[in-house]
């Protein structure tokens, strides 16, 4: 360790960053994954995320309970999901475009109501210490883990199990793979998609509340660095698999932490390309794994972006 302190610092910073930054990615991408599994894409999760961050912070400020804030953020997110699901079921309405408009609308509403909450400070979410065994302050700090991160892992495993093994999972997958087949089975396609989008919105809202209530830990207008939009790429990267979503979220978090970590040991060149690494990687994976004749492996058949 003493031979290469620089490398250790970078690795530790990436590890800490992966844990700290990945939670919103994880929740938003799980939400997006669930929505896409039902055959619709929601590009508006960025707006949901930002609104979740604002509403969670506001509730935590007024009630003093950050967990109530998380819940309300999720409910607001489900509301945006319901709006998306309801509007997209109308004929000739494009789900991609509706997503963009809801992104604008959600962000606008969050900024509108959030003006009053930029100054005051609200109670933040607590963290659990897992680093007691180590003397290294860096490791101890890295292992200050937020309960939401653990909740996200549980959620990922649950979704993976539920999509594979339960009746509801089968209904969602059928709806996403072939609407005619789902219709033939007597499934109400629009209802399944509405509920999936609502659940996806709920997760995205919770992911947003993490931003304002834990890390960075306050409400500002520049809080989100596009995590909601990146989630769309992340889900493709993870091939619509909940467990891969978790690994992808960790990777995106670590990639984001790489730039500042390198800067801290004096390497500042190419810093911006490390920030872009997740996008470049996703693009390369999309190029490498698609062809004009078949869509991405694991992609829901009804999804407009892979058709």
């Amino acid at each position: 360790m003493s031979q290469e302190p620089g490398l250790m610092t970078v690795l530790l910073a990436m590890f800490a960053g992966a844990i700290r930054v990945s939670t919103p990615f994880l929740f938003v991408s799980l939400g997006e994954m669930l929505t896409e599994k039902s055959g619709r894409i929601n590009l508006g999760l960025e707006g949901t995320l930002v609104f979740g961050a604002m509403s969670g912070y506001a509730i935590s400020y007024h009630t003093g309970s950050p967990w109530l804030g998380v819940l309300v953020a999720g409910i607001c997110g489900a509301g945006f999901g319901a709006l998306h699901g309801f509007l997209c079921k109308l004929p000739k309405v494009n789900d991609i475009a509706i997503g963009i408009s809801l992104m604008l609308f959600g962000t606008g509403l969050a900024f509108f109501f959030g003006k009053a909450y930029i100054q005051p400070s609200a109670p933040r979410l607590p963290s659990i210490s897992f680093g007691g065994w180590s003397d290294h302050p860096g490791i101890r700090q890295a292992l200050e883990i937020n309960p939401l991160f653990l909740l996200g892992i549980v959620l990922a495993i649950f979704l993976w199990w539920a999509l594979k093994n339960t009746r509801y999972g089968l209904i969602i997958r059928t709806t996403g793979d072939s609407a005619p087949a789902a219709l033939a089975l007597g499934i109400n396609v629009n209802k399944v998609r509405l509920l999936s989008t609502m659940a996806g919105g709920f997760f995205a809202g919770v992911g947003g509340s993490f931003l304002s209530l834990y890390y960075p830990g306050s409400w500002t207008e520049g809080l989100s660095s596009g995590q909601g939009l990146m989630a769309v790429a992340l889900v493709i990267f993870a091939r619509w698999h909940p467990i891969y979503c978790f690994w992808a979220a960790l990777l995106f978090g670590a990639a984001g932490a790489l730039g500042p970590a390198l800067q801290s040991i004096g390497i500042s060149r190419g810093y911006h390309f490390f920030n872009a690494a997740p996008y470049i990687l996703t693009l390369i994976i999309m190029i490498a794994s698609t062809s004009p004749r078949r869509s991405l492996k694991g992609a829901p058949g009804e999804l407009s972006i892979t058709k």
């Binding site: 590009l43 991609i96 596009g226 939009l229 990146m230 769309v232 790429a233 493709i236 190419g270 810093y271 911006h272 390309f273 920030n275 872009a276 996008y279 470049i280 996703t282 693009l283 999309m286 190029i287 698609t290 062809s291 004009p292 004749r293 078949r294 869509s295 972006i305 892979t306």
Partner: peptide, 26 residues
């Protein structure tokens, strides 16, 4: 990319926005 590789144009153009920003910043 859309025609020859079947890469969705919406997502690709969005990803390339982020890449363009990092090129500028770099």
């Amino acid at each position: 990319l859309r025609h020859y590789r079947g890469v969705n144009e919406t997502i690709a153009s969005l990803l390339m926005f982020y890449i363009a920003v990092s090129v500028l910043n770099f």
